[in-house]
Design a binder for these strands. Structure first.
Lengths: 397, 397
DNA sequence: CAATAGATAGTAACACTGCCTAACTATTGA
DNA sequence: TCAATAGTTAGGCAGTGTTACTATCTATTG
């Protein structure tokens, strides 16, 4: 089944050096996957011979990528085996989330994938430019945790808005001063390492992948405090679009025969404005959209819930027809406020599709978690690729 | 930028055997890419040493994968170099297209990607079951072209309807007797080779990739004689959906507040029914939808064209917001009848999106061409993978 | 027109690298 | 002390790279 793969990938060639590299890479891969391994386990996983496994590990120690964590506690006859592990402090991945009005959140994970620090600071983006704020927060957070700046190898950022990777531009940004900013270039400049920028909803979608129930892929309908959007994470990976604007449901006109600037878009139809209006109609009150939905759930305002669930079900139907995802997940502040009650209402109004609908399974800050997952995956990939550095097999044409 | 890739792929390990395999594979890859190569060219592409290149080629000859096509015509000093090539007759890829009322189309390509035969026969699917019809056509076509059945390694089929690969089921099929048929299993049974089934619009989308202007990916809006649909071919490859139903725009209600069975879907809104109705309204006549559009173009029926282009532009806007593709292509019989004139009208009504809109660049049978491309790509992949057979590197856990 | 120089295609011999097998040493518990 | 396990050492094998060599062909030159 190579029907879906990319057209063609170059095929490398090489000599003995390539072989060594391949085996080193394989060992490192398994160390990254398994957290701790004895050499016997490593041999089973890679199929390498005993002396070869020793040599490979030796080279991984010398390069600082692996460490030994002592020896197995003796439960068997014979000498105790050494326990190998990836050197968690070899490199770090930083995740930065930019939001209004929350400011900047920074989290840093080590090479073993453990979150080592996380901190948030409120920022007034009209006073401090976003790139400057990122820089400050990044260095301070690293310093507080005792992490060497130079060991941060990748930085991933989540921004509200469509990020066009090709032109390094943020479209539809909700943050002052972000429109004209080359954010990746700016952050790359002062960090000197690889920077990737994501849309916030896409990041939240990645976080959902932690839920095994959606491991085959999902489409996330994000009903956020500010705006709505869609994250598409299929078996191939994230669908971000040519200009980073995939899933921008909020800008789709609800009625295709009414596409003027004043006619309703899905943002108006299922986003915060719709919740407030439906709340007024059905006599449910709250300070903001999430509060309205929470109030409706609390006092069982069936009229409101049914009306709103109807609209959400319509949007899900649209997404299901176009993406045919294994799962449809409801996320964002409004969806969270609605909880299982809202999901149940939506399910009932979604017909056969109802079985696919799930509430978000992420506790906490989905966007920040997702960016950290993206940053860590990137770090792993780069470390594995770097193991090939120099003696790389010549890549075919 | 590994933000979009699949989460993780196992990393192989191995010994000298793997190395030989890798280099064989690399040579074969370049032979497949370049059609004919001298050994010097091969050396430049792979970076292998002279004797090694000789040995690799020797093994490829012995396995029957490569042949020598004589020697270079002497234009240089020194002996004439041998010209190597893939053995075109080593294996074949068959592409089958099922349609109503056209019947069955079969095309067969050799390992060099050349179409060797193509033939179509009208079939009455109420009298002959689809799998039976495929079998007959496949064997007869192969025989007529003098191709050994056993050398056909892959068969790809295109069917109208959503093909669910997991359950081997065709949903929404327009062919009698296709709903309850396990088509892949049936065809695999009698061919004994790998069978893959595709949706017809997806196949047509793949055919568009032959146009360099859309090589970065595209979304195809298919306005067919029978139905409409969407093909999504992004940088990752085809988006087919969990149940093969991605891109089924025809089943999306046009107005989310009117989702009853009698309320209009996009099929009614931009498909053949819409064309006929708009034709009546604007006094444009024709035997079918394509004829109506052709007539409108011929006599410059601006009213009709504007009204229809408006609706199509609406659908494109929806697709653009959700998929953000590099290009939007209009295909199918209705779009073809409208030609550049229709595209121009749609462009004018699409605002900034207009620049992305293109007419189909495929001459001839887009679906059949697309399946053949898919089948050939699959064949290439399998032949390359088979070069690893037996002495494959152990794939990591 | 023939002989020769020069360049290129391909092969042969040998060295290098890396992995595997088998034998060996060291360590631990019964 | 024996048996089982962890790890090392020694020797062999497979595959590639380098260098040197032969064979073939064109172009130049006498």
């Amino acid at each position: 089944m190579r029907t879906n793969g990319p057209p063609d990938q170059p095929v490398p060639s090489g000599s003995s050096h390539l072989l060594r590299t391949i085996n080193e890479r394989a060992a490192l891969y398994h160390l990254l996957e398994h957290d701790t391994l004895t050499r016997v386990e490593l041999r089973k996983l890679t199929g390498l011979a005993k002396p070869t496994a020793s040599q490979v590990m030796l080279r991984l120690f010398e390069s600082g990528l692996a460490v030994t964590l002592g020896r197995t506690t003796a439960r068997q006859v014979g000498p105790k085996a050494e326990v190998y592990s990836v050197n968690a402090d070899y490199a770090f991945a930083a995740a930065v989330t930019l939001r209004e009005p929350d400011g900047v959140t920074v989290a840093i994970a080590d090479l073993k994938g453990h979150e080592r620090v996380s901190s948030t600071r409120r920022i007034d983006f009209t006073a401090v430019s976003p790139d400057r704020a990122v820089q400050d927060m990044l260095w301070h957070t690293a310093e507080d945790a005792g992490i060497d700046r130079d060991l941060i190898s990748v930085v991933h950022l989540a921004v509200p808005g469509a990020y066009d990777a090709e032109n390094d531009e943020i479209g539809y940004a909700d943050i002052p001063g972000a429109e004209d900013l080359r954010l990746r270039a700016a952050v790359e400049e002062f960090t000197g390492c690889a920077v990737t920028v994501h849309n916030d909803v896409n990041a939240a979608t990645v976080a959902e992948r932690r839920n095994p129930a959606v491991s085959g892929g999902l489409v996330l309908l994000w009903l956020g405090r500010e705006g709505i959007g869609t994250g598409i994470d299929l078996s191939h990976g994230l669908v971000v679009g040519a200009r980073g604007a995939a899933g921008e449901l909020g800008y789709v006109p609800v009625f295709p025969d009414r596409t003027g600037p004043d006619d309703p878009t899905y943002q108006d139809w299922i986003g915060a404005p719709a919740v407030m209006e439906l709340g007024r109609e059905h006599g449910v009150e709250g300070a903001n959209a999430a509060a309205v939905v929470a109030a409706a759930v609390k006092r069982g305002a069936a009229g409101f819930l049914e009306a709103y669930a109807d609209r959400v079900a319509g949007a899900l139907h649209l997404l299901a027809c176009l993406f045919d995802p294994p799962r449809l997940v409801l996320g964002g502040e409004i969806a969270r406020a609605g909880g299982e009650t809202l999901v149940e209402h939506v399910r009932r109004r979604s017909g056969a599709l109802g079985d696919l609908v799930l509430p978000s399974a992420v506790y906490g800050d989905a966007v920040a978690i997702g960016v950290l997952d993206l940053a860590y995956a990137d770090l792993k990939g780069r470390v594995l690729d770097a193991a090939l550095e120099g003696r790389e097999g010549r890549s075919g044409s």
